[in-house]
């Protein structure tokens, strides 16, 4: 048990150091999200909470694609994944380490992206900050849970990023619906989320997302071993 925690920690710390040195992934994530926000802003007229919610979700999904792909490319470039696999019998540890790294990356990314979106669309989520954080955290976990597994799946494909984007988007759809209605609640200050949310309360939405996260982390953790065999 303590051995697993050691391995997870080592992988996590190594990935963070690696990213701090190159800064490549994070920079492209942030620039991509700013461009997305800016394009959406061109099409909108002033305060539009619906569009802001969409921008946030689109940015998170596209950035997670970059992040999850990158985190496995690092391992495959010099064959490091073989070193990891021949060192530890439990492949689940590698999954959890990578998952933690991806979630952390997305959380740091959110700290940059959400203020940018709020500035773009003249929004002040100050009153609902806690709800916003809960939703973003749950989205990050869910997207990375799926993305980490799929990142490992697409490693043997030549045109991996295009395939990865399709796979992540298809799997993350059920997460999008509650996440967007939650974000609408946050940005429209408590009112229910537009055409979405037939009377669901915020806690129901959060619960649904938490259930999605829990089940996908577990299932992906269980099947991860087969993707590297």
């Amino acid at each position: 048990m303590s051995n697993s925690i050691n391995i997870i920690k080592a992988i996590f710390v190594k990935d963070i150091i690696n990213e701090l040195r190159s800064k490549q992934t994070f920079a492209s994530m942030v620039v991509l999200s700013i461009i997305i926000a800016w394009i959406f802003r061109l099409a909108s007229s002033g305060v539009e909470s619906a569009m802001a919610a969409a921008v946030i979700m689109v940015s998170v999904v596209f950035s997670s694609i970059l992040c999850c792909e990158r985190s496995f490319v690092v391992e495959h470039d010099e064959g490091c994944i073989d070193g990891l696999l021949s060192a530890s019998a439990d492949r689940g540890n590698i999954y959890i380490g990578k998952l933690l790294f991806n979630v952390t990356m997305l959380c740091i990314f959110d700290c940059v992206m959400v203020p940018v979106v709020c500035v773009c669309f003249n929004l002040t989520p100050a009153g609902n900050l806690l709800k916003l954080i809960v939703i973003l955290l749950l989205v990050n976990i869910g997207v990375s849970a799926v993305g980490t597994l799929l990142g490992s799946i697409v490693m043997s494909i030549k045109s991996r990023s295009s395939v990865l984007s399709i796979l992540i988007m298809a799997l993350i759809m059920p997460m999008m619906i509650p996440a967007i209605s939650g974000l609408l609640m946050v940005f429209s200050a408590g009112a229910d989320g537009g055409m979405f949310s037939a009377g669901q309360s915020f806690s129901e939405i959060a619960g649904m997302m938490a259930a999605y996260d829990a089940i996908f982390v577990t299932v992906c953790w269980l099947v991860f071993g087969f993707t590297v065999d």
């Binding site: 992988i11 190594k14 150091i17």
Partner: peptide, 20 residues
């Protein structure tokens, strides 16, 4: 492949595998 991380130093690489 060398099975080492190009962005990490020699010592960090070895330390990482020592941790693993």
């Amino acid at each position: 492949g060398t099975m080492t991380y190009p962005q990490l130093t020699v010592e960090e690489n070895l330390k990482f595998f020592a941790d693993i």
